[in-house]
Design a protein around this nucleic acid. Sequence first.
DNA 1: CGGTCAAGTCATCGACCGTTGACTTCAGTC
DNA 2: GACTGAAGTCAACGGTCGATGACTTGACCG
Lengths: 198, 198
Amino acid sequence: MEVPERRRDAGRTRQRLLDAARGRFAADGFSSTTVRQVADEAGVDVALIKRYFGSKEGLFEACLAAAVDDLRAPADDGAEHADLAARLAHHALGAGVSGAASGQALMLLLRSSGDEAVDDLRRRVLGEHSERLARRLAPGGGDGAAVSPVELLTAQVALAAVVGVAVLRSSPGLEPLRAAEPAQLAALLRRLLDTPES
Amino acid sequence: MEVPERRRDAGRTRQRLLDAARGRFAADGFSSTTVRQVADEAGVDVALIKRYFGSKEGLFEACLAAAVDDLRAPADDGAEHADLAARLAHHALGAGVSGAASGQALMLLLRSSGDEAVDDLRRRVLGEHSERLARRLAPGGGDGAAVSPVELLTAQVALAAVVGVAVLRSSPGLEPLRAAEPAQLAALLRRLLDTPES
DNA sequence: CGGTCAAGTCATCGACCGTTGACTTCAGTC
DNA sequence: GACTGAAGTCAACGGTCGATGACTTGACCG
């Protein structure tokens, strides 16, 4: 299974560009990131971005698609976290499927490239997640019936809390929030998921 | 008290630039905003930005200073909102002192210009707010003693929730979260401010 | 070994950005 | 009504960005 370490490997350089771009886009945003920075960090030439992704926006969309896959991936923790809050915290705040840093996929999802299609994708993903969360919040536990407006709003506030934690952990690096473990954050966020009225 | 509507008024154009810039910076971020956009939206010439604010960064810092003043301003609601959650929600998510849109000051605080001094200011403001919130969370209600780590973390998670609500309301426009009233959000966020352990 | 095509390099283009200084116009003063 | 300084206008600058196409180098196959 040992790869012979080819000096020219399209898939490898493509992945390097993807990794470098994802970090830059998540940390600095779309417009602050330059394709030359990404290419330098990946150790390849700038022109290869056009070859493999068409344009800077194409590169961003590829990063976003990977992040969406990370976020949509079923919690492989499985039965490890029986609690809904623990699963939410680990899924959104813990390390992603790939070697992404904590909360990187979530930060990437919040970044805007100015493209309307990208904004629609973001809206769709956030809407799906909030609805799924609301369904699990319902007493029945996710039967076919539509969720009530208050349940949906509750789920969105809980989702907002996770988003806010990711934001405050990344750019301002607020301590001790940044160093807190997902389990500890889950314990604090759990109260948001209780039913508002008995 | 009728202002004679001078055609040349330095203070007026300065305020117009400030208003236009604050909206653009809060909505699109620092690097996505161009000084020509701001000048056009304000109806003045681009060169006046240099005259009144020195540079684009100076304009951003002036906007940020105004936002920090908004956030640091004592809740003029006074005794109107006896509840801590209601005060937090109204203060951060309601309309600002000036005619700023909902959560605009908070969004502006999260934006980065790449300047390290600005990042330090953001860290300081967020740290102050979380500490103040933690002090009010303490059973004693804000005596001189230092807050416990768990109280500080609880306050920061609550602050993160408010930040996340502001983020999801602004760029993705997640419904029904976007249209929710501060009082309704306060009712949902209140559970985060309870003491974790009895 | 030579052919062939993908992978990677290089220089450069046009556009846009922030910035700047010289110029023009208006308001207040004597 | 001329003087003066502030307020506003204009054109242009250097620099950087994303994009592009011609060129070179390498790997694989017969």
